[in-house]
């Protein structure tokens, strides 16, 4: 567990309202990790707090014994699509090129080799023919693939994706998950905020169930059990029961 992701006693609030409390877990790297929980459970908040994008009231986060600030260059984050201005004057290729910025440092401009690398990342997600399009001209799934390409361009070791499968087509979803699995097979780690419980076991090795606090964290087969799910999805457990019936 030399390269574990360790979260200890994390507390987060918005304007005095507690969103997350007593959050502690240890996850191994080199795994595909899902983060699930009901609406408003604090899934995105957990991801942002771990990344240090929002202030924590208490708690520590370390990856491989180092703080997030120390290893920021090895982390790629794909925010929710809804937060972006789709009319922004930027092409698909230039969006991917942003992924090379952290490695460039201050005052340096991306060179031809960076553009070529960005193009290769676009090819990986099958979006190279759209390279010169404006970002808003793409469909939801295509946009998400472009953002994955940008994360790939960062050449990170740990990928954080916030709700990447919301409002996208089946083909894009399959392509994104296959790329994440390929990354995992190459020793990378991906944490994915996810809401569709049906595919959790196919997609992830490990699972973190959140509902204001940690309901369960660990191997997906040990965590994804009716008890835990009922505890997390109190209001939705009728739905869960029916899903269990359908899958058995």
């Amino acid at each position: 567990m030399a390269h574990a992701i360790e979260v200890k006693d994390l507390h987060v609030s918005y304007y005095g309202k507690q969103v997350l409390k007593n959050v502690s877990f240890t996850m191994e790297t080199g795994r595909l990790i899902g983060i699930v929980g009901p609406n408003g459970a604090g899934k995105s908040t957990l991801m942002k707090a771990v990344l240090g994008l929002i202030p924590r009231d208490k708690g520590t986060v370390s990856i491989g014994g180092k703080s997030i600030a120390e290893i920021r260059k090895h982390i790629a984050y794909v925010p929710q699509r809804a937060t972006i201005d789709w009319d922004f004057p930027i092409t698909v290729l230039d969006t991917v090129l942003l992924g090379t910025y952290p490695s460039l440092g201050l005052f340096k401009r991306p060179k031809k080799k960076h553009r070529e690398w960005a193009y290769q990342c676009l090819e990986k997600v099958g979006m190279e023919t759209f390279a010169k399009r404006q970002i808003g001209e793409l469909s939801g799934g295509q946009q998400q693939r472009v953002f994955l390409a940008r994360a790939l361009a960062q050449q990170a070791d740990i990928f954080f994706l916030d709700e990447p499968f919301v409002g996208i087509d089946v083909t894009s979803e399959a392509l994104i998950i296959s790329i994440l699995k390929e990354l995992r097979d190459n020793g990378k780690t991906a944490l994915v905020v996810h809401h569709d419980l049906t595919k959790v076991k196919d997609y992830f090795n490990d699972l973190i169930i959140v509902n204001g606090e940690i309901v369960g964290a660990g191997d997906v087969n040990q965590v994804m059990v009716p008890d835990m799910m009922k505890k997390a999805f109190k209001t939705q457990f009728a739905l869960w029961d029916s899903m269990e019936v359908a899958s058995s």
Binding site: R72, Y77, P79, T83, D85, L98
Partner: peptide
């Protein structure tokens, strides 16, 4: 450019 286009991404870049 980054902080104008996508402030959340910019923050994740530090």
């Amino acid at each position: 450019l980054v902080s104008t286009f996508d402030p959340t991404l910019a923050a994740s870049f530090g």
